[in-house]
Design a protein around this nucleic acid. Sequence first.
DNA 1: CGTTAACTTGAATTTTGTCAATGCCTGTGG
DNA 2: CCACAGGCATTGACAAAATTCAAGTTAACG
Lengths: 249, 249
Amino acid sequence: MLSQDSIAAVNHFVRQVPCEAERPTLQGLFSRQPIEKFEAGTAVFWEGDEADHVFEVVEGVLRIYKILGDGRRVITGFMYPGDLIGVSLKDRYLYTAEAVTRIQVRRFARQRFQEEINRSPELRPQLFARLCDEMAAAQDQMVLLARKSAEERVCSFLLLISRRLDRDGQALRVVEVPMTRLDMADYLGLTIETVSRIMTRLTSRGVISPSGRHAIIVRKSDKLTTLAGEVEADHNPSAAYTHQAVWPN
Amino acid sequence: MLSQDSIAAVNHFVRQVPCEAERPTLQGLFSRQPIEKFEAGTAVFWEGDEADHVFEVVEGVLRIYKILGDGRRVITGFMYPGDLIGVSLKDRYLYTAEAVTRIQVRRFARQRFQEEINRSPELRPQLFARLCDEMAAAQDQMVLLARKSAEERVCSFLLLISRRLDRDGQALRVVEVPMTRLDMADYLGLTIETVSRIMTRLTSRGVISPSGRHAIIVRKSDKLTTLAGEVEADHNPSAAYTHQAVWPN
DNA sequence: CGTTAACTTGAATTTTGTCAATGCCTGTGG
DNA sequence: CCACAGGCATTGACAAAATTCAAGTTAACG
């Protein structure tokens, strides 16, 4: 994060191979674009809109969601500073992107973005790596939604966002939770009430303490990890293969 | 989509321009590799294995899954002929790939695969497009798991696989279902019993008829679509924005 | 043709959702 | 800076959906 900014600031949009020390980065691509601000609750784009631009989150948090025909909402992800939104080959956005907090973003025309990516053998693997990370996150979310209990979901979520903003991948003790209970519920496939009940339960067991409505303090980090159901499975093939036999019910 | 290809075709990072008629394809990359066969129930690779190779499915169906520490299984996808498996920048596979039926695959060393992709401005957008499709599918699956009822899930699944194998994107009347109820359950985030009950209900309502254990006939295609809960939401932004007001409960 | 795993069906239980009432932050305006 | 309004969040009682447990069936395979 720290180094990214300095690199970005130095980038000169070189077409010819940059022999110098600095290398182009995805952030660098956006760094010359003006910053745009959106108020909390406003949409950057809607599902189904012409997908003209790619966005980089500079500040704040957004929710990415889809809506079913009858109004059911599913938040497929929250986007934080440094994240890219709208990268796809489809000509229409597949989801709505909406500000959770007041946000700042930079915008890049999609076609030019594609050209830059295609031109640069430095940028391409960076973008590829991001897509792979996004895919891995999507798979983890499928695991959560398909098989985890409400409590495991909430704990997984708290761990996820606690790891989201810190530099070291170290979970923070004080965790900012900018989203509402409804956002959490729509992300976790639960109802507001269930999320609320579980937060209360975690509080009364001393695992977390609320710190206002939009932050918590993690008091028992290891307990939270256990409750998240992320106990690392051993990677022994035979154990995995025979899981039905090993855990008979 | 359309424009992407032309952009790619015009791209000048080509080392040796292939002026001839035939253009490289991802399939083409694999076509010189020997075919390997796996029996139903055997794994091509395990989650956590060194990610040395990328695979192309030539024949049959595979399941891609992850296992939680206590044995709960989540199938994140089924792979059909033409699909690529193991494309990622991680050095270990993120999931297990196991044959549902007897399968044929071709294998390509990952490093060489990366080199070929990097070398070829024709191949790159093809791979990118596949990753985007995979991402879109993952998001649809999150919607299914987060907010759809058991019946909607089963119907969505039947529609999905009915569209899977045919050339025209036309749903087939007779749908092969190579996977077991347990596979379906672990893909849909349900239990075998629930899947079974819903299949029975669909049958008794005349929506489908079973044709042996591993095929069904779709008798009321439109009904199946409705039950899948995929009634297209209108893409009117204000309608989407105010969904809580429009559907009050 | 028989064996066995896969599937179906039913009853009881659990989990989560729904509905409704109350409580409490947070941001606004005085 | 404080008071207050309104949106969020919490809590409880009840309902619904899906899971669990427990038999039975059936189809696929040797």
